[in-house]
Amino acid sequence: MSPLEWISNLLLGAGLLCLFTGALGLYRLPDFYSRTHAASIIDTAAAALVVVGLALRSDSFATIVRLLLILLFMFFTSPTASHALAQAALQDGLRPWLAKRPRKTRARSGGAAE
């Protein structure tokens, strides 16, 4: 096995570990915000490690470029999605688990309640 393949295996293994940690966290963590945090490990760290690991394995230049473009795209979108999700929950008045005092809930604009 060439050194490149070893590095690739190592990265894929690390990605798998992140994936497993994230999935476990998504299942076990107590509240919405910490679960979002676990999910964001999956779509940032795990996905990036797996993509880089796959890029090292590929022998065609076009494939590597595409994988790196995917990586760049995920680098921007995944954290944004997690951020938007958490912010929407906060605006909706969902309190983090460890927050002591009830947070002043901002009134939802319009009247979504039926």
């Binding site: 795209f73 921007f76 979108t77 944004t80 951020h83 938007a84 912010q87 605006q91 939802r108 604009s109 319009g110 009247g111 979504a112």
Partner: peptide, 25 residues
Amino acid sequence: PKPREALPQPIQHDQRVLRVVSKLM
């Protein structure tokens, strides 16, 4: 009587990250 909140209401100003990244993408 009252306009209801539908899906694409403009998102509030503090959603700066979302605005910047989506404009970038």
